[in-house]
Design a protein around this nucleic acid. Structure first.
Lengths: 136, 136
DNA sequence: TTCATATGTCACCCAATGGTGACATATAAA
DNA sequence: TTTATATGTCACCATTGGGTGACATATGAA
């Protein structure tokens, strides 16, 4: 029955790898990131979003919404002639966990190691000054 | 003298906004993300990296390195006829802090709120079962 | 019913992107 | 000095991406 999986009708031959790629590509554009920012609070209608981007045509905004929806970053609900667009933060959380966070963690631990070394060096220097030509 | 700033020779009129955009665009490509993964450990020579991507031409890899360097994700050091490429994780940490983390945090707190409501509902139901038709 | 509004879709344009092979240059090794 | 190796650079190609206006459709309001 796969209710909420309607978007991948018969062959979910989309690997996680491909889904992540779609997310990264969707996030590469600043306008799309700003759309997601706007949707961070509450869902908005397409028209409402269009009004928030005066420098873009309606068609352009809808294309961006399409890209976001394909990347599964959007949950779309139709209500009469209105379309409500809601942020789906899960894919963001996923690229965070799988790629961003590991790099940030690695950087943090590298900094810690470096800090330790610098402090050791500083301590040695101090010792040398106070008591020169010591054991080593 | 601006030693390490040689890449922006005279007009560093690059806003932070533009720098972030460059980082996002650089990260949008899977091959480039994999290059950064490889550089997560130790620096590598260009040739070494090329060997790690058998399905890509040397020119293609160098183009990717160029994109990464422009996004300031790479620290490049030349040594004889060899070029050492090192990861600079700072821009990653920055887009993390400015964009990814806020969204992840928002999602987390939304989940918490939701959890609280569900538990309240559940508690009410239980109470109702145990002691039906109570105050409300 | 008639009309205005919200959205969907199409065809087209131009710039940017990712890829290639060929050629040029500099440096370590023989 | 000659030769092999590691990079740098150029010109070119095909595809994708972001943008547009014009037209089509559906639905709430008058």
């Amino acid at each position: 029955m796969q209710s909420h999986e309607a978007k991948r009708p018969r062959a979910p031959e989309v690997t996680q790898r491909e889904r992540d790629d779609a997310v990264w590509r969707a996030l590469a554009d600043r306008n799309r990131r700003e759309i997601l920012d706007l949707l961070g609070g509450e869902p908005r209608t397409t028209g409402g979003l269009v009004d928030s981007f005066p420098h873009l045509s309606r068609t352009a905004v809808m294309k961006h919404l399409d890209v976001l929806e394909r990347a599964d970053l959007l949950i779309v609900r139709r209500e009469g002639r209105v379309r409500w667009n809601q942020l789906n933060p899960i894919p963001i959380e996923q690229i965070h966990e799988r790629w961003v966070a590991p790099h940030v963690r690695r950087m943090a631990s590298a900094l810690l190691r470096l800090k330790g070394q610098v402090e050791k060096k500083a301590a040695q220097k101090t010792r040398t000054k106070i008591n020169p030509r010591r054991k080593r």
